[in-house]
Design a binder for these strands. Structure first.
Length: 255
DNA sequence: ATGGTGGATTTTCCA
């Protein structure tokens, strides 16, 4: 089984790149973030023609998450069940075969100290509660998506420049560590101990060609999934060429 | 250069 996560920054703008990715990498499951459209605007047909089922939890203009899968998508949960949080479409859970997927687009937070930053930290606390109550950690659980948080300084191209900045602050990392404390490990680090691997490069600073990346897209796994995981790779080819997203996909292989 | 680019929708928000 190949499971991918990718912040596509608009599924409609990125459709040619997504179709090329499905063809080239043949993932069994893809968790998408920032689809940026209502469910009825989701370009289902070309994706279904490549053999995928689709579950989507979208909204107009912002946010939006979706799961694509070659097998039947079951037990879908849209949002975390909190009316205020679920005004933003950021969480979509489903089971595919023996995998439980929790697909996340975590709040960005704008800048350290901003109102949205405090919302981000509190949101992560409520996510932990959601996992506690709604997800069975004895299953092969993959909590994945755009976390908008680096786990440690190895995930940062220039740790001093980013010290205590948004996406890298201690409080964000502690809030993520609390989520991981539910029983999740970073599958990427099972195979790559060294720094220098990134998944997002800011459009605004033309960061990709300068190598100014951060690793903020993660595949966090319960013990059963982590044990079954045989590889994790970042698909840099999807970050080059015509109209790329600002994020690269990450793909995990499970036995 | 507290800038820059990109997407959706609009005359700006968000990243």
């Amino acid at each position: 089984m190949r499971v991918a996560t990718w912040n596509v920054n608009s599924i409609r703008a990125r459709l040619p790149r997504v179709l090329e990715f499905l063809e080239r990498k043949k993932p069994d499951v893809v968790c998408l973030q920032e689809t940026k459209c209502l469910d009825e605007q989701f370009p289902r047909e070309p994706i279904e023609e490549q053999g995928y089922q689709i579950a989507s939890f979208g909204q107009k203009t912002y946010n939006g998450v979706a799961i694509l899968a070659r097998q039947r998508i079951e037990d879908v949960i849209r949002g975390v069940g909190d009316a205020e949080d679920d005004r933003e479409a950021r969480v979509l859970c489903a089971t595919v075969g023996d995998l439980v997927l929790v697909n996340l687009y975590v709040v960005n937070g704008q800048e350290v100290g901003a109102e949205r930053y405090h919302y981000k930290l509190a949101w992560l606390g409520r996510l932990r509660t959601f996992l506690d109550h709604r997800i069975d950690k004895s299953e092969k659980v993959i909590v994945t998506g755009d976390f908008n948080i680096t786990i440690d300084d190895r995930d940062v191209h220039d740790p001093e420049r980013w010290r205590e900045k948004i996406l890298c602050s201690s409080a964000e990392r502690e809030a993520l560590a609390n989520v991981m404390g539910w029983g999740l490990k970073d599958a990427f680090r099972k195979f790559h101990e060294e720094g220098g691997h990134y998944t997002w490069w800011d459009f605004r600073t033309l960061a990709f060609k300068k190598g100014w990346g951060l690793r903020i897209d993660h595949l966090l796994m319960s013990p059963a999934a982590f044990e079954a995981c045989t590889n994790v790779e970042i698909d840099l080819d999807s970050r080059t060429g015509e109209k790329p997203s600002d994020h690269a996909p990450v793909i995990a292989e499970l036995a």
